[in-house]
Design a protein around this nucleic acid. Sequence first.
RNA 1: GCUGGUGUAGCGCAAUGGCAGCGCAACGCACUUGUAAUGCGUAGGUUGUGGGUUCAACUCCCUCCACCAGCUCCA
Length: 652
Amino acid sequence: MIKITLKDGSIKEVESGLTVLEIAKAISEGLARATTCAKLDGKIVDFRTTVYKDASLELLTFDSEDVEGKKAYWHTTSHIMAQAIKRLYGDKVKLSIGPSIENGFYYDFDSDEIKFSSESFEKIEAEMNRIIKEDLKIERFELPRKEAIKFCIDAKEPYKVELIEDLPEDETISFYKQGEFTDLCAGPHLESTGKVKVVKLLSVSGAYWRGDEHNKMLQRIYAISFPKKSMLDDYLAMLEDAKERDHRKIGKDLKLFMTDELVGPGLPLLLPDGATIKDILERYIRDKETALGYTHVATPSLATTNLYKTSGHWDHYKDDMFPIMKMDKEEMVLRPMNCPHHMLVYRNELHSYKDLPIRIAEIAHDFRYEDSGAVLGLERVRQMTQNDSHLFVRPDQIKDEVGQVLKLIHDVYVEDFGFPEDAFKYRLSLRDVNDKVKYIDNDEMWNTAEEQLRQIMKELKLDFYEAEGEAAFYGPKIDIQIKTALNHDVTIPTCQLDFALPERFELTYIGEDGKEHRPVVIHRAILGSTERFMSFLLEETKGNLPLWLAPHQVRVLPISEKFEEYGKKITEKIASLGYRVQMDASNEKIGYRIRNAQLMKIPYMVVVGEKEESTDTISVRNRREGDLGSMSLKEFEKVLSKELENKKIDRK
RNA sequence: GCUGGUGUAGCGCAAUGGCAGCGCAACGCACUUGUAAUGCGUAGGUUGUGGGUUCAACUCCCUCCACCAGCUCCA
């Protein structure tokens, strides 16, 4: 007999030599039925693992908390999908990989003959449901390397052969078999196909084999499954909500921005209301920076190619830049970033160690020739506005300055805007040690810089993860990653350490010893690009911008023509207080005009009619709370000014 | 850039080879309105672009463009 410690701390005695599944059944038949996979001594294992000695056991279920449990569930469903496709199309379709992802799973198929589309979904789903109904037992077996390769060759699955060949020599090679279908797989998997209840294929798209654009493009089918129909309905409702949050839809509905073929892709035109928001945001961050000792410069959006040859950007970046404008003697380019310009501003005069840190900032326009398939609304554009800054610091100031940048990011995002802290992830973006082409070849510099950033994050007790191959070519970064409504991971704020550009521009300061020293540069952006920040803001708020940012803050609605004069008087008074206010005296019923104001997400509506005019009051309606009743203009002013102070967003 | 899909009035959509339509918005008229849609009427189109097939093309084929999903990239 051996002792099994369960999650709740209780200990069960079971026979030695039972599988995890048998132990689960011995503990509770009901729990065993709900279980999707298990953690044995903290390690995810397959059900079929035999236990010979005392161990801790955690049975995972399909539950929002149990990520691993979901993974096993979805991974099994991906095998069911592959099996269904094999049944329907046989050897015409080759299998590659089919992992679980954050929401559901995908499977990549290769076929020159069969082209999947949403029209094939019904047929595939029907076959999957048949497999589920058959409740095929899922069995695991292992093969030595050579036999495993032979097995896949016999099965006419070339991608599987390649996968095995790339596995480390000592890796256990396991297969999972359900009915006539067998797939190379590390597991874990459910007990049988019948454990899966509801499946839904979501979309089909292309994906390069092994994520490499030089490889063949395979067909990827995304799908999801659940133990209950209602859970699928909830998930689909969530997808609908995400569509409602899409900043492109909000931007169109609220008339914030437009695009036109004649201007070009990735070049949105901000309409008056969108421009108002952008303007307020930029003023906000600029004032914040000024208060922290930043000085703002205004530098050109153009430069000669020599500037980028000097900075080193040319070799690393020229493919992402708009092509050269060639004149008689000059070669000009639109700038993709502001660093080189700011280096020159620093170099313009001699600096003492006492002057540092020097913080040069700019709300600058940058131009990047993004791939046509990558541009997206305001999220990925070809001309962007960066709230950029370069801090020129002494080596002994790095820690303090990076710390201050991180604090500023926290102040802006959490304290001011009130984004939930879990909306971001801190990413320490490191170089790819083996890639000496993309990253400046100077291991000592990299190791120092990377370690410094790592230490700062640890000291500030920030929860962060490290990502290799995400650094800038000149140095490591701390990126703040956010997930958009459409589930994209994007960087907004960033803080980068750079020992390379000061070298290339031969920047110096005079130290205490009277000699020349090399400053270090910290690149940082807080709102990132204003455009991307706006897209994030719109998706987080569903367009219900807080009062300070709302392009229209108040709309005055006279009940009828008779009260237009009074409405005009009220509008003028509110405008004189500095609020963005308009009157809608159009020839429509009050309900209709309120509806319009609601749809435009205007924070406050002021309704005036006979009652208000005779008592010199106004009737106030809030877009969230509805009718607030009547009050004097003075009282309304208090309501507005109080709300104006609060910059926090409302995510509902 | 790659794979697949989509493109019809300002917006959202219908019409699968045979007269290009609906709702909202716009405009006009009437109503003069009390907290999310008043009624009636009018106008609006080279069906993304260029070509082809056909007696006939929104519809079928090809080119290019844009957009959408994903991949690759990326602030």
